[in-house]
Simulated scan of single mutants.
Amino acid sequence: MDFYDQDNIKQLEKWGFEIIKPNYRSEKYMLDLAGLISANIDNCFELFPDWVNWNYIKDLFVIPQYTKKGVLKSEFNIYMKNIEYYPFQMYIHWKPEDHGSILYTDGKFLGIIYRQHNDIFTDFTKYKDAHSETKNNIYDFIDRSYKTAIAVDCENSDVYKLYSVLKNLNQDELSKIEKIVLYDDYHTTSGWDWLEKFTKIPIEHIEVNRVTDQKSLVDIKMTAGVCTDYYENNITSFILVSSDSDYWGLISTLTKAEFLVMYEHSKCGQAIKRALSEHNIYYCSIDDFCSGNIEELKKAVLFSCLEKYLPEIISLNGKELVRKIYEEARISASEKEMENFYDRYIKTLRLRVDNDGNFTVEICK
């Protein structure tokens, strides 16, 4: 036993895991270890984001029917015959195949484990980030500017995609930006109210009232705001976040200002891109930035939406509620991702009683 770390063994014993046992054969230890993993693996559930299928991760560590005679021996024989196909020659429960390094990239790893379950992982934005050339062009734009502000058309932008931009850019470069101005309408998602809590850049949130319900005035207000910042606040450069071609009128009129445009693939036409290219105005898509590391903002918005329904939770269907709050938060998610949210946060809602005997429902975050 000198090979093993004695301190680790003592710590495991304190946690209730008896490791050193008299007259024990190796196969007994293997059964015990397989049982411990199976019993405790779900404690790792929260270490993985909602958009990853937890069952596929879990299957790498749990051997089905491991107590059945011959199962562990069969797994051992498969492992020894194909040891070169196991990452770092360490055992995992999978169909061993020659994939090279399965841990080479997140995309490769996800693709392999999903295919092993006859499934396909398709949301590449969860792990793939914008090209370094895109980021360098943004940094160059900020560096050569006297003062830079980000102006956001909240009606024509996705708050989560914008946050993925802010999250994946160099924070020292972003600190040079004077402010982010959100031009918002009451019809948009509550996610915009949370953005300032997740970035160090000062944020101005301008909510634009409507004269009539049919007509938004966000584009007019944003145009006026950019002009005011240019002429009165000495801001010389603007990063416009919008897919609306109407802002070409602003860009083409304010000729002495510098502009960089960020848009969404599905909302921006070729005509505005051609106009920007012809006038040497750099543009990029906010869809290209990695969205797999923005769970904290998504959860903050989802929990905020969920908390509004807690007083009436008894009269609601949990699965319908999940779909409702995702729609309210304007978060696009797969059925599996919503199912994971249901398992983690709806099924685990707790009833609390305060010192005065008042009941409240609490989210286990």
Rank of each mutant, 00 (worst) to 15 (best):
T255K: 15
P311G: 08
E232N: 13
F289T: 06
C44M: 13
M222Q: 03
W194Q: 12
F141M: 04
F61Q: 04
T148D: 01
I112T: 09
F48E: 02
Y247K: 08
K324R: 12
K28F: 04
S332L: 04
N209P: 14
K147L: 11
N317M: 00
L169E: 10
S304N: 14
M80H: 02
G269K: 13
N43C: 00
L162W: 00
A130W: 04
E312H: 10
L182D: 04
A275Q: 14
W192H: 06
K336T: 11
V226P: 12
E337Q: 14
T105K: 02
V353Y: 07
K68D: 11
I281L: 05
I235W: 00
I57L: 15
R25Q: 15
D354G: 05
F48T: 05
K28M: 13
S277P: 02
K73I: 04
Y139N: 13
V322H: 09
D143E: 11
K267R: 14
L47D: 12
N118L: 03
L195S: 08
I220R: 06
G107D: 06
F303D: 04
Y114A: 01
L33K: 06
S101F: 05
N340F: 01
W192G: 04
F61Y: 13
W194F: 15
L217S: 15
S291L: 01
D42Y: 07
K126I: 01
D158T: 05
I37C: 10
L306T: 06
L240F: 04
G269Q: 07
G16K: 09
I331E: 06
